[in-house]
């Protein structure tokens, strides 16, 4: 019912969906608030050593270590006020940490694109190369990129470059496979047009095959950047030093749940921005048939 309605029906659907989202948000925050409400009265007496360890508030029993939504709000506000400060190697603004992670992802992803797109072209155009490389791709593709980390650390001997390598290795597969598929499935009639016009192989590659395969290649890039953004957090937890993954792990050691929740939200937002950015680029190269 109503799925073929006029424009105002669609607008009202958007409005209703927005209201529902708001409702769900309020419900989550409400339940959260109730769950983290300070319990009245004084708790049982506690070993002072343990009290020191878990923090004063938790020790008194009046408040759990789990922050309330208001605490989170305050923390987010605090981070947004000054996201780019640097106070020593272990105390950098959350914006700086995100920038480190984003830089690694874009570098690793960019290098992967430089390798995957030309190689995918070759695989897509040559059945020989396709068959020759297929076993390698099939075996390496399902390997968790983090499994490469020790190997990278041993050979590269640099933790920062190793995490970029891990991003590279996880981004390469979707782009490689999608490029090969897109190039291999270019319509025969378009290639025949190029042939009857005596278009040379390079011009055919750039003027016919590349635009024809571009939407599929962009889909591969979108998948790659999504995976890269998932992997960078884990990789930075392993190698440490800088980055949003390190930030999360560091705040876990500080038992600052509010900072972790803030980081989770920001990781989600940046991931969304990356995905939407590539979706926009994909839209630019997509053609209706």
């Amino acid at each position: 019912m109503g799925n073929t309605g006029p424009k105002d029906m669609k607008a009202s659907l958007g409005l209703r969906a927005g209201l529902l989202s708001l409702l769900i948000f309020v419900a989550i925050v409400g339940i959260w608030q109730i769950a983290t409400m300070p319990t009245a009265g004084t708790g049982p007496a506690m070993d002072p050593e343990y009290a020191k360890l878990v923090g004063a508030a938790a020790a008194t029993g009046s408040k759990s270590a789990m922050p309330t939504p208001a605490d989170i709000g305050a923390t987010i506000w605090h981070h947004l006020l000054d996201p780019f400060y640097i106070r020593g190697s272990n105390d950098k603004g959350i914006g700086i940490q995100l920038a480190y992670s984003l830089g690694r992802v874009l570098l690793g992803f960019g290098l992967a694109a430089l390798v995957a797109v030309p190689l995918g072209f070759l695989i897509g155009m040559s059945p020989l190369v396709y068959r020759a490389l297929d076993p390698f791709i099939q075996i390496l593709k399902p390997v968790s990129p983090l499994a490469w980390m020790p190997l990278a650390l041993y050979t590269i001997k640099d933790s920062a470059i190793s995490s970029i390598f891990v991003i590279f290795i996880c981004s390469v597969w979707p782009m490689l496979i999608n490029t090969a598929f897109g190039v291999g499935s270019v319509r025969k009639e378009w290639l025949n047009v190029a042939r009857t016009l005596e278009v040379g192989p390079f011009r055919t590659a750039f003027k016919v095959i590349l635009p024809a395969a571009a939407p599929t290649i962009m889909t591969g890039m979108r998948i790659s950047v999504g995976i890269a953004w998932l992997v960078i957090v884990a990789a930075e937890m392993l190698v440490g030093g800088t980055g949003i993954g390190y930030f999360v792990w560091n705040e876990w050691n500080n038992l600052s749940i509010a900072n972790i929740v803030t980081a989770i939200l920001l990781i989600g937002l940046v991931g969304l921005a990356l995905d939407q950015g590539l979706a926009y680029l994909a839209k630019l190269v997509t053609y209706p048939e």
Binding site: V193, T196, A212, Y287, P288
Partner: peptide
């Protein structure tokens, strides 16, 4: 060859 132009059954225009 460019001397022999083909008009394809399915028009074969490049859609982009």
């Amino acid at each position: 060859s460019l001397d022999r132009a083909v008009i394809f059954q399915g028009h074969a225009l490049l859609p982009w």
